[in-house]
Structures are given as structure tokens and as C-alpha cells.
Design a protein around this nucleic acid. Structure first.
Lengths: 103, 103
DNA sequence: TAAAAATACTCCATAGGTATTTTAT
DNA sequence: ATAAAATACCTATGGAGTATTTTTA
């Protein structure tokens, strides 16, 4: 299981369509289908009921969705946190902080 | 950012060594180094202070660790949940359930 | 029968491997 | 001096693309 699969899953769950999800995730429709197929294979469960008219979550899909959101949420949290993390890259503001010597 | 990078990060944080982490993650030491380097580059922060004697977390590394554990925890939760999810793959126990017709 | 998903390939980006060098104690 | 991380280079897996063929309401 990798994050791109979880992102693709979320896109399908949200749009209710592989084609629309592919556009949202900026990948081709076959790539997205393969990505979901591999995820389902690894998990050993079908996550979606597919038909030309609609793509809906299976019971397992619903369960997966909840934790999937936790995973993606935690990832966004990481990035947001570190964006504010300048401890190791101290800002050099004017003359207050001299440029460190090259090592 | 991908899960393998987070897993590799966790291995280094836990073992305090790239070499030991590589063994734990079942990859080569250079592969693990590259993986962490790419993660640091993407995040724009150094996650570890490295020296031949010790590898320790930077302040940013500490912050990353917390949320990284959330991510990995959520992933394990997903798998554990779905392992119990047999709704879409009903067990065929003896004669009680006939094998579905091939479509 | 007309959409949407699934196949069948082809390609290439990059994760990962081996060999070696550099670094810091 | 030595153990550990970084670098150089190569390989190959599999993620992603295009073209096409099933599906099923």
C-alpha cells in the first residue's frame, strides 16, 4: 500500500467515477484503474462496485474510506507542520544574523 | 512523499543508524540514504543530524516523527480493519455456500 | 448503443542494488 | 584507523501512457 493508491481511492470515492477521478488525480483512466485494482488485490477486498452508470463504495470500501482520510489528513498535517519549521534553517534577517561559515 | 519514505524514516529514528535501519527495512544502506535524502529535499528540512557515531533527530525530525507515527498507525489500522472485512468475499464453508458461477 | 471501466501493449522514471569513496571520531 | 554515511553508476520493476476492447444499464 502506498500513498498514491490512497489518494486515487479518495478521488474515486469523492467523484463516484474512475474517469472523473483520473482527471482530478491528473493521471490516465487506465492508470487509475490499475492503481485501485492493485490496492484491492493487496487488501483482498473489492472497494468499489463498478458499473457504467455508477461507482459506489462496498462495505469494505466505506471502512477503508474512514481510515484513508486519517492517513491523508496526517500527511497534510506533517507538511503543514514542517512548513512552519525553520528551526534548522534559521532565517538570516539583515545584519542581525551573520551568514554561517561554509563547512 | 510516499509511505516507503515514512517507513524508512521511522526505521532510522528507531535504530539511530542508517545501516541498522536498512537491515530492518530490508533494503540496502544506499537505498535508504537516498530515500531519506529525497524526503528531506521535498520537505525542505534536515530530519537527522548524522555522524559516524550517531544519527539523531533534528527539531524538525522530532516534529515529523510524531505525525509520521500517526500516518503509519492509520495504515496499520486500515489493514487490520479490512482483514476482518469478509463482507465482499463471503467464505465458502463446505456445502453451505455454493461456488459462485464464473462471469 | 453509448457511456464508462477493463485489457493489451509499450515506455521510462526511479526505487533499489553493488562497488567505492568520503567523513568524522 | 575504522566504522558508518555519502556518492557513482547500473539495473529492472512497475507506474503511467496510448490504443483498443469489453461491459451493462
Amino acid at each position: 500500500m502506498e500513498l498514491y493508491q490512497i489518494r486515487h481511492f479518495a478521488a474515486v470515492a469523492e467523484t463516484g467515477s474512475f474517469t472523473k477521478a483520473a482527471i482530478r488525480a491528473a493521471v490516465s483512466q487506465p492508470a487509475l484503474s490499475a492503481s485501485i485494482a492493485k490496492l484491492e488485490e493487496e487488501l483482498g477486498v473489492k472497494l468499489f462496485h463498478r458499473s457504467p452508470k455508477s461507482v459506489t463504495l462496498t462495505p469494505a470500501g466505506h471502512r477503508f474510506q474512514m481510515t484513508a482520510q486519517e492517513v491523508l489528513g496526517a500527511c497534510n498535517k506533517v507538511k503543514a507542520e514542517l512548513r512552519a519549521s525553520v528551526a534548522d534553517r534559521p532565517l538570516r534577517i539583515g545584519v542581525l544574523c551573520r551568514r554561517p561559515t561554509r563547512r
